[in-house]
Amino acid sequence: MPFTIVTPNGVLYQDDVEKVTIPTQAGEITILEAHAPMVSIIQAGEMHIHKDGNVVPLAVSTGFMEMRPTGELFIIADTAERAEDIDLSRAEAAKARAEELLKQQDNMADVDFARIQASIEKELARISVGKKYRR
């Protein structure tokens, strides 16, 4: 199944894969060959690409996916990182910073709250993917 991830920084991954596990808003889904055409919203989390028996973990943040009737799968994400590109200490620091912000401001706007929450989720995904690579 032809599979492509694009972010504003360019194409991150483009290859033929067997299956992909994607964190969506309605829960985790796995897309196999010849899936029905589908559009869904991606949540920050871990994505697993299965290719030739290997599993490639990726950290993605929000975005959307489109399965085309032609059998191609596209992921259009704000950010996506391979495990080896993730700087664990920086991810930890970013998460700690976001959590600190969340604690400080009790009466902040809902929008800010949601934004910080989203960034914590994103950092958590990065940390978890980054750790997999270390092991």
């Binding site: 808003q25 029905a36 589908m38 869904s40 919203i41 959307f64 032609t70």
Partner: peptide, 29 residues
């Protein structure tokens, strides 16, 4: 770009949510 009948698509969690989420993002892009 080939024109696919939009009815063929599955929308997860729903068409309404997709449109509400996707449209503003695409304007941004």
């Amino acid at each position: 770009v080939e024109v696919f009948p939009i009815e063929q698509y599955i929308f997860e969690p729903g068409l309404e949510q997709i449109i509400e989420y996707v449209m503003p993002r695409l304007v941004e892009i």
